[in-house]
Design a protein around this nucleic acid. Structure first.
Lengths: 126, 126
DNA sequence: TAAACATATGAATAGTTGTTCATATGAAAA
DNA sequence: TTTTCATATGAACAACTATTCATATGTTTA
């Protein structure tokens, strides 16, 4: 059995050898760090846009309000898949809906969403 | 064995019964659809921001350039995990790096990234 | 040149997530 | 009230992804 020093053990654990960290930088940035939760929320927020089906749904809804079936036929996907994703978008308040008889019409909940889509599109076409 | 009509078959397949689709809306939006690839790229782009480790890395790099070890100690994560994610960020050209002896310093590749982070933060705190 | 060291990377694993299938729900029409 | 129909949803499965472990790479110092 090999005998580790403290530092060797840290390295073996995959943790950085803190002696060689740039302490000044790390301490400065540490103070500027937001709440852990804020960054987690931010990741969750972007995650919504990080799926092609959801992006497509958001895109078509940016053009017009639409029922589930319209979206499914536009994207050539099953009704169930669309419905599941609409639930996610609903929970995150990216889309809203209104009922008209048997049909449910979905639309973007505010134009902030449209801005973000546009911002992203602008970025990738550079 | 049950005998399906065409429409029953479509429904059984999970495909929407296109007779009940709102054709006017669908046709109009169909014309306004961007290339499939453009939307796929857009989703890929947002996916990068949709992971808490990557968001944290981008955040700390927005404060200062830093070596792998600095990031690992700030996020209290293993060096390997950080290095793997930096590779992703590098491939997507969100970060750049410079070598100084044995140390590699990473930084954001342009301030567009910072803008998007800020935009996202603004959005979730509403 | 050999040893030390920061970073990179391949393989394996565990956790997550999107789609499908089957079925439930709830509103309108018969 | 019964049937029809648009949408919703639980469970199962498949695909993907992040982390860890072990080790490789390439640079510097002894």
């Amino acid at each position: 059995m090999k005998d580790f020093t403290k530092i060797e053990q840290e390295v073996a654990d995959g943790v950085c050898d803190f002696i060689h960290v740039h302490e000044d930088i790390v301490k400065k940035v540490e103070k500027a760090m937001p709440e852990e939760q804020e960054l987690l929320d931010l990741a969750e927020f972007f995650k919504i846009f990080g799926d092609s089906t959801r992006i497509k749904i958001l895109y078509v809804l940016s053009q017009s309000e639409m029922c589930v079936c319209d979206i499914a036929s536009l994207l050539m996907m099953g009704q169930s898949a669309i419905s599941h994703q609409l639930r996610v978008l609903k929970q995150m308040r990216l889309v809203k809906f209104r009922r008209e008889g048997k049909t449910v019409f979905y639309s973007l909940s505010d134009d902030h969403i449209q801005t973000i889509l546009a911002q992203g599109m602008e970025h990738i076409s550079e």
